[in-house]
Write a protein that binds this DNA or RNA. Structure first.
Lengths: 196, 196
DNA sequence: GTCTATAAGCTGATAGAC
DNA sequence: GTCTATCAGCTTATAGAC
C-alpha cells in the first residue's frame, strides 16, 4: 500500500524503463539506479529481470485498462464515448506502454510477460464492442455495423497511429489516422451527418 | 549486383536480425555469425553497427514500398486495390520489418535510421490517398470520403493489427481489424452494398 | 533487508598482422 | 579484404558479510 517502499519503487522504475527502452533495452542495473536501490536489494524482492518485468507489465496493463474504461463508461452516446477514447490526450511520440512491448521477441516468447498484453487488448476490444453494440441497439448506428470487427479496427488504429507518429517524428499521422476513422464511423451513424 | 558478395550477405543478415530482434537486440557479432563473415571483414565494409543498420533498413524500406506499390497499381477499382493491399498474405506474427523498428528509441533518435521509416509511410499514405481520390472521382466512393485521412487509417490498421496479433499470440486480431475496416469502407461505397 | 565482491560472457570497437 | 588479438565497459546474476 505504501508507494514509497523498495519493491514499489523498483516496479515504477521498471515501468518507466520498459516504456522508454523496451524489455531487451532495460537492464536490472539501470532499474536499480533509477529506483535508487542496491543490487542485493533488488534480488531480494524479485527473482530477476523477467520476474521484475512481469510485475511492471502487469501494473502498466491494469493502469491502461482503467484509463480506457474511464473513457468508455463516461457520459454520452456510444459514438461520443468511442470518440472520447480515440481523442483522449496522449503522449503520442512515447507510444503505448503496453502495445509497444509486443514488438519485443523476449516478451511475446514469455507467457507471463505476454499475458497482460493479450488480456489488455482482449478486454479493450470486448468493451468497445459492447459500446458499439449498445449504439446499434439504440439506433445510433446503422444496423449493419459489425461491433466486434469495428472494435478491433478502433484499437488497431490507435496502436498503428503510434507507429506512424514515431516513424514520422511528429504526432501528425496519429491524429490523421484517428480523424480518418472517426469520419468513417460518422458515416455509419444512422442519420446522415450534416454538420458544416 | 552479386547477391553473394560479403557486403550483400552482411546487409541481408542485418535485415533478418533487425526484423527478429530489433535494433537494440541486434549485435554486430550476431550479424557476423549469420552472414558467415569475420569481424575485420564487417568493419572493413561498414563503419559500425549504425552504418550497417542504415543500409539494411534502407533496403527493407525499398522492398516494402515495392510490394505495396504492386498491390495498389494492380487491376481493379480503387476499393479492390485497397482490399488487395489489406488482404495480401502476411507473416502476421513476425510483424512489419519497417514499422516494428519505430518502437526502438535508438532508431527514432538517429535521423539516418528513422528517415527510411518516415519515407516509407509517407509515400504509402500518399499513394493510398491517390487511389482513394481516384475512386471518389470515378464515383466509386461517396463524395464525402476523406482520401488523406482514410489513407492514414488504412496504414494504421495494418500496423496496429500486427501489434494486436503479436500480443494475442495468434493472427486473429489482425484479420478482425482489417475486416472491420473493410466493412466501414464498403459502407462508404457510393452504391449500398447488397452482397449476401 | 541491504551491502559489497566476484564472475563468465557479451558489446562494440580498434590495431596490426597476413 | 580478411584474420586474430585486445580492450573497457556492460549484463545478469550468485555468494556471503553485515
Amino acid at each position: 500500500m505504501d508507494g514509497e517502499d523498495t519493491a514499489g519503487r523498483l516496479i515504477e522504475a521498471t515501468q518507466e524503463l520498459l516504456w522508454e527502452r523496451g524489455y531487451v533495452g532495460t537492464s536490472p542495473r539501470a532499474v536499480q539506479r533509477r529506483a535508487g536501490v542496491g543490487q542485493g536489494s533488488m534480488y531480494h524482492h524479485f527473482g530477476g529481470k523477467p520476474d521484475l518485468a512481469r510485475a511492471a507489465v502487469h501494473r502498466s496493463a491494469e493502469e491502461m485498462q482503467a484509463r480506457a474504461e474511464a473513457d468508455l463508461s463516461g457520459a454520452g452516446g456510444a459514438l461520443g464515448r468511442v470518440r472520447a477514447y480515440l481523442t483522449r490526450e496522449r503522449a503520442v511520440l512515447r507510444g503505448c506502454r503496453v502495445g509497444g512491448l509486443a514488438q519485443d521477441p523476449d516478451v511475446v516468447a514469455d507467457p507471463g510477460l505476454r499475458a497482460p498484453l493479450q488480456e489488455t487488448f482482449d478486454r479493450l476490444r470486448a468493451r468497445l464492442a459492447e459500446v458499439l453494440e449498445e449504439g446499434r441497439a439504440d439506433g445510433e448506428f446503422r444496423p449493419d455495423l459489425d461491433p466486434a470487427g469495428t472494435a478491433a479496427t478502433v484499437v488497431a488504429v490507435v496502436q498503428g497511429g503510434y507507429v506512424l507518429a514515431r516513424s514520422a517524428g511528429h504526432p501528425g499521422p496519429f491524429h490523421e489516422a484517428v480523424d480518418g476513422l472517426l469520419r468513417l464511423l460518422d458515416a455509419h451513424a444512422a442519420e446522415p451527418d450534416t454538420r458544416p
